[in-house]
Design a protein around this nucleic acid. Structure first.
Lengths: 150, 150
DNA sequence: CTTGAAAATGTACGTCG
DNA sequence: CGACGTACATTTTCAAG
């Protein structure tokens, strides 16, 4: 993973792909002033170097049966981390898990089909320590791409 | 935004696109047993109905100059919400903002090029109320797609 | 990085169940 | 109406310069 510096063209390509990951190489090339093969090759290298980690369709969680989203803070002793992480790994409704500074050990982002299901999900961690949950009432800002300096 | 029920084929298409949003219609069709035009038409409708909200490239934030990620909880009185949201809107380093239940009013997810920059970002909210920040030490799970029941 | 040709894919339309 | 097959435009890929 050599940390190649990104030039202006790379940054413009990345900025475009953050907005629409399905843009064709031809269209991307047109927008930045590059031929199709040159564009494809740059993107291949950005993937190879780990700058481009993947392309994800963004779904409406409500439409797929998950109207509830919540952030859960876990307070657990360090010796429980491996078991906690194993539990998290096996729960597909947990979409993110971060080890963080401060009192809490982990911050989780989870979805659930109902509040009862969320309650069940949270109780999976009862044996490890305390939890604190913030249920999302409304999302005011989401899926904003990373700012890219030109 | 009529709430069409998703059939098995829709779900399989969505599941594939969550893993790789750049899959061709031809390839998607092959995987679920549909012709290319039929696949394209289904996906067009899923977009139209708001089930498919977009296609995003996932970038490595560290590679683009943002080694720091943090969750910030904001404690502000309801009358400050409009001004707080306006501030958030104008800060590209804030990637998510959710209005939540519990003591905190908002949960933010932000990136920063340094801890000093994060400190500056957080201080933008000092005049509105209290903040609590959890800096991400390591991400154990990220970009996991929503579970889709067949 | 560009050009140019061959293969694959995307899209529009006619047709069938 | 939804899915298919054909026909044609666009895109992808690969070679060579």
């Amino acid at each position: 993973m050599t940390n190649r510096p990104l030039d202006r063209l790379d940054k413009r390509l990345l900025a475009q792909l953050q907005v629409d990951a399905r843009l064709s190489f031809a269209e991307l090339g047109r927008r930045v002033g590059l031929s199709t093969p040159a564009t494809a090759e740059r993107i291949r290298k950005l993937e190879e170097h780990g700058v481009l980690r993947g392309y994800r369709a963004e779904l409406d969680s409500h439409s797929i049966g998950y109207p509830v989203t919540a952030f859960i803070r876990l307070y657990v002793p360090a010796e429980s981390y491996p078991r906690v992480l194993a539990v998290i790994e096996g729960m597909p409704e947990i979409r993110e898990a971060h080890h963080v500074t401060g009192e809490a050990s982990f911050v989780l982002k989870a979805v659930a089909p109902s509040l009862i299901a969320l309650e069940t999900l949270i109780s999976s961690f009862d044996s490890f320590g305390k939890t604190e949950t913030s249920i999302v009432l409304s999302t005011r800002l989401a899926a904003r791409g990373l700012p890219i300096n030109p």
